[in-house]
């Protein structure tokens, strides 16, 4: 049996290239799958986030948040985002259960009323805390949420990259397409150009300051989102990444949302 497989492999290796001719769509999907595979196994992480929002006049305002994320095998991740600043929204928390297909489940905790409110996650293009990030940009990215098409390979920032397009497979996205630059060696997402519903360039996201965690996972320190149509931008910086902290399902329910700090 083993011999048989070896022979098959040998045959395949020797076969002319056109037998393998992957369509650009297949190649794009294969890249996304490999990217996803490399992200698997982090178990959970916590991190601090600072967002600096700037308008076209350069006036800045700041948001401080914390994120805990739990990896869910076979489905999207569970995450809890807690707002620390501005102080008037301190204690507000967002619980998200991402799903590979269909809408995410979302609950918002409003500390002044002590109220947990189920919210619709369907409006994915809505602004996240007034920033240039939309909800669909900050929630868990699953392979199934897009269809793909590889465009070309090119050198970007001195790194050999795949350049591919992805098209939202979910309803109510603010985008027709996204062009993604991913480095071939480590599958680090370097840049995304977002095209709006009219297919005009809307925003560019740049990831910077990649560091390797657990000897395996590459996470950026900074995400810079620039809106080309409004002149506004948001710099999201991440710090205090901690992995495999022992978070459990119980840390992502409505009781934990209510006592989130």
């Amino acid at each position: 049996m083993r011999k048989c497989i070896s022979l098959t492999l040998l045959f395949l290796c020797l076969a002319p290239g056109y037998l393998f001719a992957e369509t650009p769509e297949e190649k794009g999907l294969a890249i996304a799958r490999e990217d996803d595979r490399r992200d698997n196994g982090f178990a959970d992480f916590t991190a601090s986030m600072v967002m600096v929002l700037k308008n076209r006049h350069g006036e800045a305002s700041q948001r401080i948040l914390r994120n805990s994320t739990l990896e869910v095998t076979g489905d999207g991740d569970k995450s809890l985002v807690i707002f620390d600043e501005p102080r008037d929204v301190k204690g507000t928390a967002l619980l998200n259960f991402a799903h590979k297909t269909g809408n995410d489940d979302q609950w918002l905790y409003l500390p002044a009323l002590k109220r947990v409110k189920r919210i619709s996650s369907a409006n994915k293009s809505g602004s996240f805390m007034g920033s240039e990030f939309a909800y669909e940009d900050v929630t868990s990215q699953e392979v199934e949420k897009y269809t793909y098409k590889w465009l070309r390979d090119e050198i970007h920032d001195g790194l050999d990259c795949f350049v591919f397009e992805r098209y939202p497979a979910y309803q109510n996205s603010g985008y027709t397409r996204q062009v993604v630059w991913l480095d071939k060696a480590e599958y680090r997402l370097l840049k995304i150009d977002f095209y709006d519903r009219k297919n005009s360039l809307l925003k560019t996201l740049t990831h910077r300051g990649y560091k390797k965690y657990l000897d395996k996972f590459w996470y950026p320190d900074a995400m810079f989102m620039e809106n080309h149509q409004t002149g506004k931008n948001t710099l999201l910086t991440w710090s205090d990444y901690q992995f495999q902290t022992g978070l459990k399902d119980d840390d992502f329910n409505k009781n934990s949302l209510k006592r989130a700090r």
Binding site: N103, D105, K117, R118, I119, S120, S121, A122, N123, Q171, N172
Partner: peptide, 9 residues
């Protein structure tokens, strides 16, 4: 109770 269905709550 609350029931979410797409954009409807």
């Amino acid at each position: 109770l609350s029931l979410v269905s797409g954009e409807w709550l």
